[in-house]
Design a binder for these strands. Structure first.
Lengths: 202, 202
DNA sequence: ATATTAATCGGACTGCGGTCCGTTTAGTCC
DNA sequence: GGACTAAACGGACCGCAGTCCGATTAATAT
C-alpha cells in the first residue's frame, strides 16, 4: 500500500522545481536587483546578469524566458498589490464608487505607479512579439472597459478602453514627464478631463 | 579673376553629394524596395540590404543613419502627400471646415494611411532613442492640438492632443486590426465618437 | 596630367537578445 | 549505496543594429 504523495505533483501545479533551479532563480533575482540599484534597469543586460549571478546565460533565459519576463517577475509583487487595490480595495479606486470616479482614480493611480516603477514597466513591456499581450496590460484595459460600461458609456466601450489605455501607455507618460517636462499632476488632471468628457459626452 | 561657383556650395544647402554617394543611394533605395516587395518590411535587414545593393554595410548606415531612417526615406513621398492633404487640401481634411469636422477627417485619413503603409510606418518609428521625436509624429500632434483649439477645446489642448495621438499610434491600430480582428471602419467610427465627446465635452 | 584633400567606402568589430545542444546533476526507485 | 532518468546547466553560437578606421576615390586646384 502506498500513500498518495502530498506535496509535489498531483495537486495540479507546475511539477515542482528542482532545488538547484530554485537556488539559481533566487541568485538571478538578487543579482538583477543589485544591478538595477547600481546602474538602472536600462543598463541591465542578460550577459551581465548571468555573470553577476555566477550562472550560465542559458540558465537566465530558461528561468525567465526573456529580459521582459525577468522584468515582469521583478514587478510582480508591486503589480499584484496595485491590482488588488483597484479590484478589491476601498473606493474610489475599488468598488463602491460611481464608474466615472473610479475611472478618474484609476488613471491617477496608474500614472503614479508609472512614475515610480517607470523603467521597469517599460522594460517589461518591450517584448518583441506583442507589447499588448502582456497580461497586466490586458487586465487594465478590460477594467477600463468595465468601468466605462458602469458609467453608462454606450459607444463601443472596447475601443474606447483601448484609446484610454493608449493615453496611459508608460512610454508616453515617461516621455512627457522626463523629456517634455510635463508635471505628473498635469497628466492626472488631463486624464480627469478626458474621461469626464468621454463618459458624459456628446 | 574667378567667378563665384554656381552650383555646389554657397547656396546654403547640403554641400552637394558626391557622384558615387548619389549612385549608391539610388542602388540602396532600389534594393530596399525590391526586398520589401519580396519579403515584407519586417524581413529587411541592413546586412541583406547592403548585400543586395552590392555595397558595404557602413555605406548603408552612412546614407540613412539607421534602419528607421531608411524606412522614413522610403515613406517620405507618400508622407509629404498626406501632409499636404491635411494642411493645404480641400475640406473637410484641409482648411475651410470647422475644427471638429477636420479632426474627424484627420483621424479617418490617418487610420486609412496606416492601413496601407502599416509595416513601413511601424519600422520607421521603431528607433531606439525617441519614438516620439519622429518629425512627422510631432507635426501630427501639433496639428491635432491646433484643431482642438480651433474647435473651442480649452482644457490643456497640448496633453489632449497627446492622448488623441496615442489613440492613432500605428502599432496599436495595426494590432487591433491584425491581431484582434477589429474592422478599420470601426476604428474610424470610434475615433469620431471620441473626438466628438472630447471637443463638445462635459 | 599631377598633386591635394576631403568625403566616401567596405567589412571587421562590438554588444545585444535569444537559441542550441552536449554535459552534469538532483531526485527516485531498487 | 548504485543505477536510472528527466531536468537543469552553461557557454558556444546566431542574427541583428550600429560603429570604426584604414584604404579608396571623386572633385578641385595647380
Amino acid at each position: 500500500m502506498s500513500f498518495i504523495p502530498l506535496l509535489p505533483g498531483s495537486l495540479s501545479g507546475p511539477p515542482a522545481e528542482r532545488s538547484d533551479a530554485a537556488r539559481n532563480r533566487e541568485r538571478l533575482l538578487g543579482a538583477a536587483r543589485e544591478l538595477i540599484a547600481e546602474c538602472g534597469a536600462d543598463a541591465l543586460t542578460m550577459d551581465r546578469l548571468a555573470e553577476r549571478a555566477g550562472v550560465g546565460k542559458g540558465t537566465a533565459f530558461r528561468r525567465f524566458g526573456s529580459r521582459a519576463g525577468l522584468m515582469m517577475t521583478l514587478l510582480s509583487d508591486s503589480e499584484a498589490a496595485f491590482q488588488a487595490r483597484f479590484m478589491f480595495g476601498p473606493p474610489p479606486l475599488g468598488p463602491g464608487a460611481p464608474g466615472l470616479e473610479r475611472l478618474i482614480a484609476f488613471g491617477a493611480a496608474r500614472i503614479a505607479y508609472v512614475m515610480v516603477h517607470g523603467d521597469l514597466v517599460r522594460a517589461a513591456e518591450s517584448t518583441a512579439h506583442g507589447r499588448y499581450e502582456v497580461p497586466a496590460a490586458l487586465l487594465w484595459q478590460r477594467h477600463i472597459e468595465f468601468l466605462l460600461r458602469e458609467a453608462g458609456m454606450d459607444a463601443d466601450p472596447f475601443l474606447m478602453a483601448m484609446s484610454l489605455s493608449a493615453t496611459l501607455d508608460p512610454d508616453r507618460l515617461l516621455h512627457a514627464v522626463r523629456v517634455q517636462g510635463v508635471a505628473p499632476e498635469r497628466l492626472t488632471e488631463s486624464w480627469r478631463e478626458l474621461v469626464t468628457r468621454v463618459v458624459s459626452g456628446r
